[in-house]
Write a protein that binds this DNA or RNA. Structure first.
Lengths: 208, 208
DNA sequence: CGACTATTTGAAGGGACTCAAGGCGTGTGG
DNA sequence: CCACACGCCTTGAGTCCCTTCAAATAGTCG
């Protein structure tokens, strides 16, 4: 099982704030630094040459993104909502590299964590039926978003969810409504979500 | 730009053969070894607990898969058609790790290459319209599959393409037929594909 | 040659997209 | 404090694309 790589960094760096929509780094820029999310949600946005824009992945507290696997960033990173993050310098990357010669799996955990964020979307998009995708999406976020009393802080704009699920905002809205009518989830507020029937949600995610 | 990491291995290991459909490693098994494709195509298959089966990625000559980023393999690897491959041992992985302390980007290239194979699917599935996805798929394979006189050796079962594109085999067949009728591609044989109008294919892939 | 699998084609049905309009929420400025 | 503007969410109607089921054909391997 994958563990969040927070333990990679013994020293506590000062977290920086970012407002919703703010850009953390831009696709095509050299990988000078990578980012660790402390609070809030960030999105990886891919811009094709033809102007196509896709939300490729979402990153939650504890996640790291922009790891210098290649020379340039393959996507832009933007804040989905207000967030706190740490900007790690390349010198820290080299520290990790040299440490990995002794404890090899630390860095690999971090790399794997980033890769996994992208794989999840591929798995979700592979499911047929938008309700199934939405259920899988909620189950994924449920393990990542902060919650109190079983109520998720679901502060994700539906436009972002739509781009992530490769659908339209209208369909996202209708899918959520359907899950509410089925009494599988409840949304006391726009940015609050409570899973009422996890078992039925899982069944729908599996395509039934 | 990403370079195929063949140069990672100075010594030439003896390539092993595998028949179409053969399993190279199984999801859940420990990452004892990883694989380099020399000839043919391999697929990464993810089996969900509910029996859902998805082709997550395709790997072509020069690609490596099953890198021990995590402890266990996250997908099964199977031969799409008859192929030649090299099974690398964990000791080779450790050699790469120690070498990376001096030349860091060699290993990262390999890791990035595997990750990119998965990202491509996510990008393709994010497009709307099956014709657009199919066009993007052909353009992707065109840079990976061997060709002679501009004719691709397109020896991919349509069932695999269907699973990769998250659609049905019938739709795959119909999409290919449509591209043939448009004179954008030609298929002199079932397993041969020639791109007649790359520009129009790119336009369709971009969603027009 | 025969069994089996993969591909092709047709028809019917439903789900998702698009376009359009209205409601809700937030933040800003008077 | 209120009014307004703006963006986001919600809902409806129509259309088209894709899926599903079914059947026929082509290809492959013994």
């Amino acid at each position: 099982m994958y563990h969040h790589p927070e333990a990679l960094f013994q020293d506590r760096m000062i977290a920086m704030p970012a407002r919703a929509g703010e850009t953390l780094f831009i696709q095509g820029d050299p990988c000078d630094e990578f980012i660790e999310i402390r609070r809030g949600v960030a999105r990886a946005v891919n811009h094709s040459r033809d102007g196509n824009r896709q939300v490729m992945a979402l990153f939650f507290p504890g996640d790291m993104l922009g790891l210098p696997l290649a020379r340039d960033h393959r996507y832009s990173a933007e804040a989905v909502n207000d967030l706190l993050y740490v900007r790690h310098s390349p010198s820290r990357w080299h520290t990790l590299l040299s440490r990995m010669c002794r404890e090899e799996n630390r860095l690999l955990d971090a790399v794997w964590g980033e890769e996994q964020s992208f794989l999840v979307r591929s798995l979700i998009l592979g499911r047929t039926g938008m309700l199934s995708r939405m259920a899988a999406f909620i189950l994924m976020t449920a393990g990542k978003l902060p919650q109190s009393d079983g109520v998720l802080q679901f502060a994700l704009p539906q436009t972002d969810i739509a781009s992530y699920l490769a659908t339209s905002p209208e369909t996202v809205c209708r899918s959520l409504r359907q899950l509410r009518e089925y009494r599988i989830i409840a949304m006391p507020r726009r940015d609050r979500l409570k899973i009422l029937a996890p078992d039925r949600l899982a069944i729908i995610a599996e395509g039934a």
